[in-house]
C-alpha cells in the first residue's frame, strides 16, 4: 500500500516536472522575437511597441540565462503560478478550473453510460453464450475499429444534422451533453464489455463457482456471494487501463463538439501556441490522471485485499 502510494506520488512529481520542462522547451523554441509575438497576441497588433515587448521579456524572463529561466519557470509552477493566457490575457488557473469542470461532467456522464451498457451486455454474453455472444462481440469489434472521432462524426451527421434531435455542438443544456457523452460511452463500452464478459465467463467456469452450487446455494445466491466480487476484480483493474482511452477520447470529443473542456482547451492552445494554457491544461490532465489512477488502485485493493495481506 505504502509502495503503491509512493509510486503514484513520484508520478505526480514527474508529471509536474515533465510538463513544465516540455512547455519550457516549447517556449524557448518559438520562432522570431518571442517577446514581440507574445506582446502582440496579448495587447493587439497595433499596440505593440518596444516598451510592451520589454515588459513581456522581463515578465517571462526571456532575457535570462536559459538555466536561470528554467529554474524560475519551475519555481513558478510549484507555486501554482501558471501565468496568463497569451491569447485572452486571463489567468490560466481560472480557465483551467472552468474547463476541468466541464470535462469532469462529460467524463462522468460518459463513464456512467458506458458502465450501464458494458456490464449488463458483458454478463449477458457470458451467461447466454452463443449466438448472442457472437453477435455482441462482432458488434463491439466493429465499434472498436472506429476511432472515437469517427463515431462522433457519424452521430453528428445522423442525430444532429439529419434527424435534428440534438444540437450539433456547444454546451449548456442537457441536450448538448447527450451526443458527446454517448460517443464517449460507446467507444469505452465496446472494449469494457469484453472485459466484463471474459471475467464473468472465467468466474462462471471456475471450480469455486461450481462448488458453491454443490454446497447447496442456488444459482442466484452463488452469483451474489461468489460471482459479483470475483468478476469485479479484473473489471475494476481494467478501468485503470481505460482511463487512458477516456482522456484521449475526451480530447477528441471535446474538439469535435466544441465542448469547452480541458481537451478542447489543450488542442486549441496548441493550435494557437498559447504556451501558458498548454502548460495549464496538460498539467491539469496529468494530475487528474494520476489521481484517478490512485483511486482505481485503492478500489482494487479494497475489492481484492489478497496482495496486501500476504
Amino acid at each position: 500500500m505504502k509502495a503503491l502510494l509512493l509510486k503514484r506520488l513520484l508520478q505526480l512529481i514527474t508529471v509536474v516536472w515533465g510538463v513544465g520542462t516540455l512547455t519550457f522547451v516549447l517556449m524557448r523554441s518559438l520562432p522570431g522575437d518571442m517577446a514581440y509575438r507574445i506582446a502582440a497576441s496579448r495587447y493587439g497588433q497595433d499596440n505593440v511597441n518596444s516598451d510592451a515587448a520589454a515588459l513581456v521579456r522581463e515578465e517571462l524572463g526571456l532575457n535570462q540565462h536559459p538555466l536561470e529561466a528554467y529554474w524560475h519557470w519551475l519555481t513558478d509552477l510549484l507555486q501554482f503560478n501558471l501565468g496568463n493566457s497569451m491569447v485572452s490575457g486571463l489567468p490560466v488557473i481560472e480557465s483551467v478550473q472552468h474547463m476541468l469542470g466541464h470535462s469532469m461532467l462529460l467524463a462522468f456522464a460518459g463513464l456512467m453510460v458506458s458502465i450501464l451498457i458494458a456490464i449488463p451486455l458483458g454478463l449477458l454474453s457470458a451467461w447466454r453464450g452463443n449466438p448472442l455472444d457472437s453477435v455482441l462481440m462482432g458488434l463491439s469489434s466493429a465499434i472498436r475499429a472506429m476511432p472515437v472521432f469517427v463515431i462522433g462524426v457519424l452521430f453528428v451527421l445522423l442525430f444532429a444534422l439529419h434527424l435534428g434531435w440534438f444540437p450539433v455542438a456547444g454546451y449548456g443544456t442537457f441536450a448538448h451533453l447527450v451526443l458527446p457523452a454517448v460517443t464517449l460511452a460507446l467507444s469505452l463500452a465496446a472494449v469494457s464489455n469484453r472485459v466484463v464478459r471474459d471475467s464473468a465467463k472465467q468466474t462462471f467456469r471456475a471450480a469455486f463457482y461450481q462448488f458453491s452450487k454443490v454446497k447447496g446455494l442456488s444459482t442466484w445466491q452463488t452469483f451474489q456471494r461468489h460471482g459479483v466480487r470475483n468478476i469485479a476484480v479484473p473489471v475494476v483493474a481494467f478501468f485503470g487501463i481505460q482511463l487512458v482511452s477516456m482522456i484521449e477520447g475526451i480530447v477528441m470529443i471535446e474538439s469535435l463538439f466544441s465542448w469547452p473542456g480541458i481537451g478542447h482547451g489543450l488542442a486549441h492552445a496548441i493550435f494557437a501556441r498559447d504556451i501558458p494554457v498548454i502548460q495549464g491544461a496538460a498539467l491539469a490532465m496529468g494530475v487528474v490522471f494520476v489521481l484517478l489512477n490512485t483511486l482505481v488502485d485503492l478500489l482494487c485493493l479494497w475489492i481484492d485485499p489478497r496482495g496486501v495481506e500476504q
Binding site: A207, R225, H226, I303, R306
Partner: peptide, 8 residues
C-alpha cells in the same frame, strides 16, 4: 484451493 472462493 480452486474450489474455495479466493476472496472470501
Amino acid at each position: 484451493w480452486h474450489a474455495l472462493d479466493p476472496l472470501m
